[in-house]
């Protein structure tokens, strides 16, 4: 039996019918075709499925779609605006924060939530903020550098030219 839910995904209203056992991750990937969020473990241990739920990073594999009703979801597909990469995305591209790319969408969203709350985080704060997002390729070094660079880019952009 399905139920109708309404939520906002990447700023757009979504209305869809889901069965009770549908996770938010499945809703995004299978029903809405937003395959940016990945399933690496299905048990909340890897962070590949991270999305922002009302601005906070969560493992979408551990959220029922029904529990996302009425809430705001941001996925990696919602980061770039008008074909322009978000500064975080740009920093990951330039600093080598991406290798296989499987952790990248989740990593970006965890980092975004950090920078939205703390525009000038320390390295320890960056590491803590992404400590639920596993990466096997980079050893996190260039991811941390990417986030730091994004913070710099953001502050520069805010100050204006």
């Amino acid at each position: 039996m399905k139920r109708l839910i309404r939520l906002r995904v990447n700023g757009e209203p979504v209305e869809t019918a889901v069965p009770a056992n549908r996770t938010l991750l499945e809703l995004l990937r299978d029903d809405l075709g937003l395959t940016g969020a990945k399933e690496g473990c299905g048990e909340g241990d890897c962070g590949a499925c991270t999305v922002l739920l009302d601005g906070l990073p969560v493992s979408s594999c551990l959220v029922l779609a029904l529990q996302a009703e009425g809430r705001e979801v941001l996925t990696v597909e919602g980061l770039a605006q008008d074909g322009q990469l978000d500064l975080l995305q740009q920093a990951f591209v330039e600093e080598g924060g991406v290798q296989c790319g499987f952790c990248t969408p989740g990593m970006l969203l965890a980092a975004k939530s950090l920078l939205d709350a703390k525009p000038n985080p320390s390295e320890a704060e960056i590491r803590a903020a992404i400590s639920g997002n596993l990466c096997r390729c980079t050893g996190y070094q260039k991811i941390v550098e990417s986030v730091r660079r994004a913070a710099d880019l953001r502050r520069a952009a805010r100050r204006g030219p």
Binding site: G44, G47, T50, L53, L56, P57, V58, S59, L62, V63, A110, A128, A129, S131, G132, N133
Partner: peptide, 9 residues
């Protein structure tokens, strides 16, 4: 507890 992702839920 767990990680930031878990602590938010």
């Amino acid at each position: 507890v767990g990680s930031p992702l878990v602590r938010n839920l």
